[in-house]
Design a protein around this nucleic acid. Structure first.
Lengths: 338, 338
DNA sequence: TTGAAAGCGCTAACAT
DNA sequence: ATGTTAGCGCTTTCAA
């Protein structure tokens, strides 16, 4: 049969409440008692019943991860974040549930309310692009549900989660191209209202400006974070009288599209054209030539965001916006200007 | 404050137990009473407390979806399945939790036991390739946890879930190539011990045999379901003295790799070479030329598997292995033999 | 067909 | 530092 808290109490010769204290890391337990209780738990392989804990303790031990399954970034990115969040939840014995939500759908808030009413998550992790959807944030605040964001565009105080300096990273990768002698560097932009698109574009501009190069508007083309949009953007660039010698795409999927299109035009990468991306998805290493890109540690970011959240949930700490570093993955798709 | 079952009972002038009966669709409630109770629930926007239900009723209203995050198929495939499972769970007011498990890892079973002991899922959905991992199935049976599989390789009785006739689908797509006049048709195989790889290879062979074409072993090359492995497989094929005129890759990622490699070799698709894949991932439509492939309705399969599972869980029905149809998506990457 | 009482396994609030 | 009591919101068992 199931081992209950009461059984542990009896085995350790203490009251149930004391076992409960140990279980919840509360103060006011002598070290000696604590050890005895822990030993008994271990020996009996005690597993607290989450529903009982939740019912009596008015908390759910549940973290919900919200994502937009309509207008979302590459699913590999989300999957990595999900794994990271899950890892953090596991470590703290929280469970995680995932909720796809459609930002553009009219019942967004109703569905959010249903989630809260039905499951009472102790906290919520937000992923791009819904990290910055004002009605969502407002509703969460009203409902008193703590939330942490992965790569929020907003930087207001009270925002907790994880960010990466994407602008700095974008600048770094463009500087890598500049160092190779490139001067006509194109940029394929991501979906317009995503923070990621803005930061990466800003980094591109910053690098050019710092090098004293005037931006040529025809070299900045709109994409949509998909492979196909990368192909299309590249075709526009290749149709120019004066083609770029390098392309910085705002993510790897689009960079792959650019390389694909280069193949169509008989343009050799990296000999005739350097291409680089952003994110370092698994595909980046599989392309040929392997893609030079910025590594964004999505899994780690998911984990860190969840850890920030759990700190707030458990210790009522104020929480903070952590920052993770990036790294330049210089591979074979970039070379000296022809 | 929270609306409780007792409040609904008072409003409907019945006992709490009767409300509970209505909530759980039990028999022995007069139609009249049932209507009154349902109306009261609606009016008060009653939301049963899952933990209370779970604690008293000895069930968790929880479905766990297990996947292998090491040796897994494309994450877009898993993400689609996940969305489908979630949809089914939502409809039945079950919650879903996801669990990455590493088949090759030594503590697989220990982690599974922990999942069961900690969360008591009422049922489990298995995704390829762990649908056929014997120790897992054995443990689930021992623990009495019902489980449904998406595309199980095994067909024993008692297996519930969803399948697609992949062999038939593979045969159909190869027949499409044959109809275009191709005779030297290559096949890029997936990871060896995945059911998907075997079925697709079998379908390929069946189609050739039916057309009276002897299989040429050099045209069957090993891949690993990744883009990169498709590139490598294609290079081997293109190095042959007598190249194939068509390639059927066991999934879309590898097919994309084949097309990529074709670009390197100056081979025009579909003019010089027809290429087709399997799965119909989003990328298939974005490639240029758009990829001819078999549509596997992953989302629907996830949903159906979960529905089968829930039927078993809720009605103690025996459950069955449902089957979904496939469709050939003939696009621009296949053409008449040169 | 309906209801009353007991209790699921744990924690809050209050003792001591 | 530890224990006692009551009760979280629902379902079970049993009776009417």
């Amino acid at each position: 049969m199931r081992v209950r808290l009461e059984d542990v109490a009896r085995a350790a010769s203490v009251s149930p409440k004391t076992v409960s204290r140990v279980l919840n890391d509360e103060a006011n337990v002598s070290d000696d008692t604590r050890q005895r209780v822990l030993a008994a738990m271990q020996a009996m392989d005690y597993r607290p019943h989450p529903s009982a804990r939740s019912l009596a303790g008015h908390r759910s031990f549940l973290v919900a991860m919200l994502y937009d399954n309509n207008d979302n970034p590459a699913s590999t990115y989300l999957a990595e974040i999900q794994d990271g969040v899950l890892e953090a939840c596991d470590e703290h014995r929280y469970s995680m549930m995932v909720r796809p939500l459609r930002m553009r759908s009219g019942d967004f808030i109703r569905r959010l309310d249903a989630l809260i009413a039905d499951h009472h998550p102790d906290g919520v992790v937000l992923t791009p692009p819904i990290t910055d959807y004002a009605p969502l944030l407002k509703r969460l605040r009203e409902a008193g549900v703590p939330h942490a964001s992965v790569s929020p565009a907003h930087r207001g105080k009270g925002i907790i989660g994880v960010r990466m300096d994407e602008q700095q990273a974008a600048r770094a990768i463009v500087e890598h191209l500049l160092a190779l002698g490139h001067r006509r560097i194109a940029h394929v932009v991501g979906i317009a209202d995503h923070g990621a698109s803005r930061w990466r574009l800003a980094g591109y501009r910053e690098a050019l400006a710092a090098a004293g190069i005037a931006e040529d508007p025809v070299l900045v083309v709109q994409g949509a974070f998909t492979f196909g949009s990368g192909v299309e953007a590249a075709r526009k660039l290749f149709a120019l009288k004066k083609r770029p010698t390098a392309v910085f795409a705002a993510n790897d999927d689009m960079a792959a599209g650019v390389m694909w299109a280069a193949g169509e035009y008989g343009i050799k990468v990296p000999h005739d054209l350097s291409v680089c991306g952003f994110d370092d998805i698994p595909l980046a290493r599989q392309l040929w030539p392997a893609l030079t890109t910025v590594r964004q540690p999505a899994r780690e970011m998911g984990k860190l965001a969840a850890l920030q959240l759990l700190e707030v949930v458990r210790d009522r700490s104020p929480g903070r916006l952590a920052q993770v570093g990036f790294s330049l993955e210089v591979r074979d798709s970039t070379a000296r200007v022809p």
